[in-house]
Amino acid sequence: MANIISDETIEYVGILAKLELSGEEKEQAKKDMGRMLDYIDKLNELDTTGVEPMSHVFQIQNVFREDVVTNGDDSENMLKNAPQEKDRMFVVPPTRD
């Protein structure tokens, strides 16, 4: 089964992935994704009826701990990594019109 990836699909996945691809990149992405999905379709040869999806290899339960602060205030150093900061805050573009 050959997977043909449409322009709409690539647009949609680009939105989900928060990536802006150039025209050339889109064409390449269509080819790459189609080819990978053809390959992944090999999994359909396996009968997995009744098999539980395994997200973790060990039977571990959720790990809880008390919600206690153990680290100090390091905001000054953290803000040094900010692309843009002002008055000890991260600066971002307007989030609404």
Binding site: V13, L16, A17, L19, E25, A29
Partner: peptide, 13 residues
């Protein structure tokens, strides 16, 4: 990296 993010976004969609 972009190739894998695109594929990953697709299989989770």
């Amino acid at each position: 990296v972009k190739r894998r993010i695109m594929l990953g976004s697709f299989v989770l969609s």
